[in-house]
């Protein structure tokens, strides 16, 4: 198209670059608290997924370089890397990366065709296949209560603290009152998300709907069973909430098209996340919430065919 009008034209690669840029602060904080294992996770997954990408493009007799350079796979790899506990065995990382790329994206026809968020597909495959390593250090009782996978990474330290607390006769739940590294990391994701909003790369509908509905659902749950629930104050800044709201749920490929549908989609993710966090046997709520709502996207798209703008 004619570029005589100086439009801020973006390219797919450019969008992905910006999202990765927004991931940097949170990632740096994670590395600071949890060590270089995070970097190892991310880089191994990136390498493997790029290799898968090249392999598939070769099979399809299409040029590999543009597909890799558009950055979509690298971004998905980065997101998956952030969700895994550091020190995961190498072969599990490889399986996670391969399922993300092949099962999550290419079986559906590649970029733009996948109904499920690839990073979450990779995560779900790993969680179901290797529950032990993926939820290492979590005791059976703790398993059902743990807020999410990320707390699981910190369990080594938290468990120690927990024992101290128990010796002092305090309740199990109080340890979660100050998972301050997590709060800090979530704030970093939040800032990344605000950057994306400001750059117009994502729109507010999904994150806001998701955070609101999670807060409401959690508030209800807390009101009903205050003994068994994290206090709402820490909920939005715990675990993968902000990363999920701004980086995972907003994946444009797997989100619905129209804005009303996006509000519902975000709200659904928030609600299911809280439901899973509160009741399920799995520690991570967001991955399954995103995957479940991905299933509903075609239906949502059908319902809101012509209602693009609010």
């Amino acid at each position: 198209m004619n570029n005589a009008f100086s439009l801020p034209t973006r390219s797919t690669g450019n969008i992905m670059m910006n999202v990765m840029l927004a991931l940097i602060p949170g990632t740096v904080l994670m590395v600071y608290w949890f060590g270089a294992g995070i970097i190892v996770n991310i880089s191994v997954i990136m390498l493997v997924s790029v290799a898968c990408e090249a392999f598939v493009q070769m099979l399809r007799q299409r040029p590999a370089t543009p597909a890799i350079l558009d950055g979509s796979m690298l971004l998905a790899a980065w997101l998956l890397g952030l969700c895994l506990p550091p020190g995961l065995p190498l072969f599990e990382l490889i399986i996670g990366a391969a399922s993300m790329s092949l099962l999550g994206k290419h079986v559906f026809g590649g970029l733009g065709q996948n109904p499920f968020n690839p990073a979450m597909v990779g995560y779900a495959v790993l969680l179901i296949s290797f529950p032990k390593t993926m939820t290492a250090w979590i005791s059976p009782t703790e398993f059902s209560q743990a807020a999410n996978a990320w707390d699981s990474i910190t369990q080594a330290t938290v468990l120690d603290r927990l024992r101290d607390l128990e010796r002092q006769g305090l309740s199990v739940y109080e340890h979660t009152l100050s998972p301050w590294p997590w709060n800090a990391i979530n704030v970093a994701w939040l800032f990344g998300g605000l950057y994306l909003l400001a750059r117009g790369i994502i729109r507010w509908h999904i994150p806001i709907a998701m955070l609101l509905s999670a807060a409401v659902a959690h508030g209800l749950h807390y009101w009903a069973f205050p003994q068994h629930t994290l206090p709402p104050s820490s909920m939005l800044l715990s675990g993968a909430m902000m990363l999920g709201a701004f980086f995972i749920a907003t994946d444009p490929v797997t989100a619905p098209s129209s804005l009303k549908a996006r509000l519902l989609y975000g709200a659904g993710i928030g609600f299911i996340t809280v439901a899973l966090r509160s009741f399920s046997n799995y520690p991570e709520g967001i991955a399954f919430a995103v995957l479940l709502m991905n299933c509903a996207v075609p239906l949502l798209d059908r319902c809101f065919v012509l209602e693009t703008k609010p």
Partner: peptide, 13 residues
Amino acid sequence: MLWLTLIGLALLC
């Protein structure tokens, strides 16, 4: 809440 979720999903299906 689990039941609500399940009922919601069932309705969806």
